[in-house]
């Protein structure tokens, strides 16, 4: 029985993808697996939103797409983060941290 699907906070998908790609270049499946594994199956990227997001980010110039071979010799499209994407990731991380911090203050007032 797979764990219940947890919805992502709006706007975090880009950040998660960028963060995954900052580790190494991956294909779409790899990104989904990476996020799922690191979040210990708490976060599951819906593929239906993954691919449109990848297209959007490619057009914004945050990531690059390139066809390559998997270790099993299958053809797959690999995504690589660009300098612009790295800068974007930094900004998103900062604002996300601020958001979490703000939420935490509301939930547990000191």
């Amino acid at each position: 029985m797979p764990p219940a699907k947890r919805d992502l906070l709006p706007g975090t998908l880009d950040m998660l993808i960028l963060s995954s790609l900052s580790v190494q270049s991956m294909h779409g499946y790899g990104i989904a697996q990476h996020i799922q594994r690191l979040s210990q199956d708490k976060l599951r990227v819906e593929e239906g939103s993954l691919y449109p997001a990848l297209q959007r980010m490619r057009q914004k110039g945050w990531i690059k797409a390139q066809w390559g071979q998997t270790p099993n010799n299958q053809r797959a499209r690999y995504y690589t983060i660009t300098v612009l994407g790295q800068r974007q990731l930094g900004e998103q991380e900062t604002s996300f941290a601020e958001l979490l911090d703000a939420i935490a203050r509301v939930m547990r007032p000191v």
């Binding site: 294909h27 779409g28 691919y51 066809w67 299958q74 053809r75 797959a76 499209r77």
Partner: peptide
């Protein structure tokens, strides 16, 4: 071409799943 590539990509994703 992008459309065809996306189809390939989705097919690949499906085989892995």
């Amino acid at each position: 071409r992008l459309q065809a590539e996306l189809d390939d990509e989705l097919a690949f994703h499906r085989t892995l799943l």
